[in-house]
Simulated assay, not measured.
Amino acid sequence: MRRRSADATGTTVPSTASIAETAVTAPTTCSAVGSSRILGSLRVFELRYGSIRAEALPSGESVAFIEQLLGET
């Protein structure tokens, strides 16, 4: 079952768990060793992306923050 959640902007996005499930269940032509190495790298990427995404500002707040830094407001 695919889980979905809304991000800070209200956009519905697949959860990290559903992305990982897709990667694990997707057919592959890689060898078992190569496949597990790829899946391990994918999991590391998902964890890093999730951490960065959790800290991100919503798009409107990002624009306001950048404008404030540039002195345009």
Results as ranks from 00 to 15, higher is better:
Met1Gly: 09
Arg2Leu: 04
Arg2Glu: 01
Arg2Gly: 02
Arg3Ile: 09
Ser5Gln: 13
Ser5Trp: 02
Ala6Gln: 14
Ala6Pro: 03
Asp7Arg: 03
Asp7Tyr: 03
Ala8Asp: 13
Thr9Lys: 03
Gly10Lys: 02
Thr12His: 02
Val13Lys: 06
Pro14Tyr: 02
Pro14Val: 08
Ser15Phe: 03
Ser15Val: 13
Ala17Val: 09
Ser18Ile: 04
Ile19His: 01
Ile19Ala: 03
Ile19Gly: 01
Ala20Ser: 01
Ala20Thr: 00
Glu21Gly: 04
Glu21Val: 06
Ala23Lys: 00
Ala23Phe: 09
Ala23Leu: 14
Val24Leu: 13
Val24Gln: 11
Ala26His: 10
Ala26Asp: 09
Pro27Val: 00
Thr28Leu: 02
Thr28Val: 07
Thr28Phe: 05
Thr28Tyr: 02
Thr28Asp: 12
Cys30Met: 13
Cys30Leu: 15
Ser31Val: 01
Ala32Leu: 01
Val33Gln: 03
Val33Thr: 10
Val33Asp: 07
Gly34Thr: 07
Gly34Phe: 08
Ser36Asp: 13
Ser36Lys: 12
Ser36Arg: 14
Ser36Tyr: 07
Ser36Val: 13
Ser36Ala: 13
Arg37Asp: 13
Arg37Leu: 14
Arg37Phe: 13
Arg37Val: 15
Ile38Asn: 12
Ile38Cys: 15
Ile38Glu: 15
Leu39Pro: 01
Leu39Lys: 02
Gly40Glu: 04
Gly40Cys: 03
Ser41Asn: 11
Leu42Lys: 02
Leu42Cys: 05
Leu42Trp: 12
Val44Ala: 08
Phe45Ala: 15
Phe45Ser: 11
Phe45Val: 14
Glu46Asn: 14
Glu46Pro: 02
Glu46Gln: 12
Arg48Pro: 00
Arg48Ile: 14
Arg48Thr: 13
Tyr49Phe: 14
Tyr49Gly: 03
Tyr49Asn: 10
Gly50Gln: 07
Ser51Lys: 14
Ser51Ala: 15
Ser51Gln: 14
Ser51Tyr: 10
Ser51Ile: 13
Ile52His: 10
Arg53Asp: 09
Arg53Val: 11
Ala54Arg: 11
Glu55Pro: 01
Ala56Gln: 07
Pro58Gln: 00
Ser59Phe: 01
Ser59Glu: 00
Glu61Tyr: 05
Glu61Trp: 05
Glu61Asp: 11
Glu61Arg: 10
Ser62His: 08
Ser62Asn: 07
Ser62Asp: 04
Ser62Glu: 03
Phe65Ser: 05
Ile66Glu: 02
Gln68Ile: 00
Gln68Gly: 11
Gln68Ala: 12
Leu69Tyr: 04
Leu69Ser: 09
Leu70Tyr: 06
Gly71Lys: 02
Glu72Phe: 07
Glu72Asn: 11
Glu72Leu: 15
